[in-house]
Nucleic acid binder design. Structure first.
Length: 786
DNA sequence: TACATACAC
DNA sequence: AATGGTGTATGTA
């Protein structure tokens, strides 16, 4: 079996290229599939697209292997258990079977092509396709005889059929004809569901009853009506539910119909031999998966393998498969569904030209905004979609506090998302808005307006307590407090954005494949005196979280309280924390001349604007840090990167000036800070407090590596007389600490000084360091690692 | 929530 | 030379 497969790969390689258009489509019965497949393969071979398809294919193969392995691991007892569960579920589902409704699915025949032929009758009888050289939307039946079909690129179609006529798409026309067909649909079911421009689901139960007609007669009449109204033919399927009706409408295509009676036996017979790929929702991948793992090709087999399916798939997937096996589908008429997202995207010649990409983004933002306004929509989640030159698709999203719809707002956030990805070479950019505001009047109902949980008092060993609101009434000037800074979440409450800023090409972060590895590092300048056990030079050994908790507990005496400053602390809304920070930092000079004017830029802000003032001083702080950072390490920044940063600062300065005239706007500021800048500000504030013990939990994740190195160096300087506990993934962040604890899946795998750990080549830490070196060897090594 | 996949037309 | 655009659902972290 494996041998015949591999010989196919070498002698007839095209057979292993799985395209989307391998499934049987109406009108393609007499086609020489082998030939078509070979031509498609030869036209595609070697292209970037093809390489990406191969990558995806390999990924699916891997998935199949994993599933097979999981299958093989199941014990007999487990299998019988899952079978019992599945049998019970089958009974439950069977009980929901509803044979009282009659559903009709109408599907227009080669809709776009038929419409084009209508408006240009000379196309009649000739092979024709709607679309262009890159993509075909619809092919007429003459073209299908050559293997030309929807979703096929035009240049391949032309190879299959040199005389093929191409007609560009014209959605206005299709919408017009679609409306005509819907007028007819409406006569049979006022609540019909439009599945697309050329498809509809109608519940014809009442029509049949009221007019004393069989469903077949209704279908005939409706199709005749559609033809009279439009001059276009369609096909219909009648069945007790929508899932089956959809399958039925395809059976006698084109210009035909198929009736499946409302009878359980008829349904079961119909379903039994039906290939699963005919069912809507089962596509190329699922078909492949079910065939190669379980040997399932027909719907009937879904029931035969129900136990194992239940064991390997999620409940909702398993349910769907069972329904397929039982021929069950929805019979209800769902209430009008609101749209959940709106998007637009454009493909172009792949380029890394930032000005070009930005320009595309501007266009998309404007178009999207216009579309949103047309439907009076405002959304709060914006997603940037990118397709790289190698066809890899990436999306990056932000969820905002406010609903937006203006092109300016969209562009502002979209360009931030794009900037974080630069440099990058793209062939497509898209924007999508989702999470819409229910009412259109634009009332800014804040859906995630949070109460502030700022200072949370807790012990390390008792775990993190981010959610509880614990009042804080201790003396902040006490130097014995530990300040834990957790900055791996955004600071800004205005704008919650959980972006992954890591660049997969910039491998400065080391983690194991499932990303569960973590390094907990103790830089222990003072701890020695306090607790010798932590500083033990013992060999790496397995440890448990309890032990760590225990060890750390001994510090609780000294650190009478752990002050956790979470991100909200740094937020402008946080009066308490801001007061706390400034009161604990008495040597801090006032920025405000005469308690009114900013010393640095002269902006005027009354003292009552507490939050705005904090925001403003943070801004200057960030500016300073940025400057210091680029001065101290100018060569490590590419000119381009520096330009971006400079640009960032300038845009902020501009915003500040604007605020002069309207102080109320200041509350919005900080919005356009990069996440890295926010982390910088957090860090700076904490360092200023000069604690004896500092916990840095992924404190610099959002800062680029170069800056991170500067920061780490600076932290070491600033904290030479204090104990620093770092939690980090980046090796350079932790390499020169006194003690390293390697965590894997929440457990301490080993701990010792880095030098000791590195002596053992097979220690987890050594492996991480080696992996890090391997990944960074291709790029610049700024880190001066051993 | 963010992101990737799968699917449909 | 060259493989789309729009929208939904779902799984996973």
């Amino acid at each position: 079996m494996a041998e015949s497969e591999s010989s196919e790969v070498t002698s007839r390689p095209w057979q292993s290229y799985h395209t989307v258009y391998t499934n049987a489509k109406a009108g393609m019965e007499g086609v020489d599939k082998e030939k078509v497949q070979r031509i498609v393969y030869e036209m595609s071979k070697g292209s970037k697209y093809f390489e990406n398809e191969e990558r995806k294919e390999a990924f699916i193969k891997q998935k199949i292997e994993n599933m097979r392995a999981r299958c093989a691991k199941l014990t007999a007892a487990e299998i019988s258990h899952y079978q019992k569960v599945a049998d019970k579920r089958i009974l439950e589902l069977e009980a929901t079977r509803d044979l009282t409704r009659i559903w009709l699915h109408v599907d227009m025949d080669a809709f776009y092509a038929a419409v084009e032929t209508l408006s240009n009758p000379s196309l009649k009888g000739k092979p024709m396709a709607v679309g262009g050289m890159s993509m075909i939307s619809t092919a007429n039946y003459e073209a299908r005889k050559f293997g030309v079909r929807a979703a096929m690129p035009g240049f391949i179609a032309r190879k299959l059929c040199p005389q093929l006529i191409f007609v560009p798409t014209d959605f206005k026309k299709y919408t017009y004809y679609s409306d005509l067909t819907r007028k007819v649909f409406q006569k049979y079911d006022a609540n019909f569901m439009a599945a697309s421009l050329d498809e509809g689901y109608l519940d014809i139960t009442n029509v049949c009853k009221e007019r004393g007609m069989t469903s077949g007669e209704v279908a005939e009449e409706l199709r005749k009506g559609v033809y009279e109204e439009t001059g276009l033919t369609c096909s219909a399927g009648v069945a007790p539910n929508r899932l089956l009706a959809k399958v039925c409408s395809d059976i006698n295509k084109p210009n035909g119909q198929f009736i499946l009676p409302n009878d359980r036996m008829a349904v079961m017979t119909f379903i039994s031999s039906l290939p699963i790929r005919k069912i809507g929702g089962i596509g190329k991948v699922t078909e492949h998966l079910l065939r190669d793992v379980f040997g399932i090709t027909t719907c009937e087999e879904m029931l035969q393998k129900s136990g194992i399916l239940g064991a390997l798939f999620s409940p909702s997937s398993a349910d769907f498969f069972l329904c397929v096996g039982l021929g069950l589908g929805s019979t209800n008429t769902p209430q009008v569904r609101l749209r959940k997202s709106m998007s637009n995207e454009r493909t172009f010649l792949a380029t890394g030209d930032e000005a070009f990409l930005y320009h595309k983004l501007v266009d998309l933002a404007e178009m999207l905004s216009a579309d949103m306004k047309k439907e009076a929509l405002c959304g709060r989640t914006l997603t940037l979609k990118m397709k790289t030159a190698s066809f890899e698709i990436r999306t990056r999203a932000v969820t905002l506090q406010k609903y937006i719809c203006s092109s300016e707002d969209i562009l502002k956030h979209a360009s931030k998302l794009l900037k974080a990805e630069l440099p990058i070479s793209l062939r497509l950019i898209g924007l999508r808005m989702s999470q819409f505001n229910e009412d259109k009047d634009g009332t800014p109902s804040d859906p995630t307006q949070k109460t502030l949980s700022n200072f949370i008092v807790s012990g390390v060993a008792t775990g993190r307590n981010m959610d509880d609101h614990i009042s804080f009434d201790s003396d902040l000037s006490d130097d014995h407090f530990i300040t834990e800074l957790k900055t791996d979440l955004p600071i800004d409450n205005h704008e919650i954005c959980y972006n992954d800023f890591r660049d997969p090409l910039d491998s400065n972060e080391v983690s194991d494949p499932n990303n569960s590895n973590c390094l907990l590092i103790y830089n222990n300048d003072e701890m020695e005196k306090n607790d010798g056990s932590l500083n033990s030079k013992s060999k790496a050994k397995v440890n448990t979280p309890e032990m760590i908790g225990h060890t750390l507990k001994s510090y609780e005496a000294e650190a009478s309280q752990l002050v956790k400053i979470d991100l909200d602390t740094m937020n402008k809304r946080t009066n308490l924390s801001d007061d706390a920070v400034s009161s604990s930092n008495q040597n801090k000079q006032s920025l405000w001349v005469d308690d009114y004017k900013c010393l640095l830029c002269g902006i005027e802000m009354p003292s009552s604007f507490v939050e705005e003032r904090q925001e403003h001083s943070d801004f200057h702080l960030a500016e300073r840090l940025q400057k210091e950072e680029s001065d101290s390490n100018p060569r490590s920044l590419t000119p381009k990167k520096r330009f971006i940063q400079k640009d960032h600062i300038t845009s902020q300065s501009k915003r500040k000036k604007k605020h002069k005239s309207s102080p109320a706007d200041v509350a919005e500021d900080g919005e356009n800070w990069s996440m890295g800048q926010r982390q910088l500000v957090c860090l700076a504030r904490v360092l200023l407090q000069r604690r004896k013990i500092l916990v840095l939990d992924e404190a610099t994740t959002l800062v680029d590596t170069t800056t991170d190195n500067v920061i780490q160096w600076r932290i070491r300087e600033e904290t030479s007389r204090c104990t620093v506990i770092r939690v980090a993934h980046r090796i350079p962040t932790i390499i020169d600490n006194d003690l390293v604890l390697v965590l894997d899946e929440g457990k301490v795998v080993e701990y010792d000084s880095p030098t000791e750990l590195l002596k053992n080549n097979s220690s987890a830490f050594s492996k991480l360091v080696m992996e890090f070196k391997r990944r960074s060897s291709s790029g610049n090594n700024h880190w001066g690692l051993p």
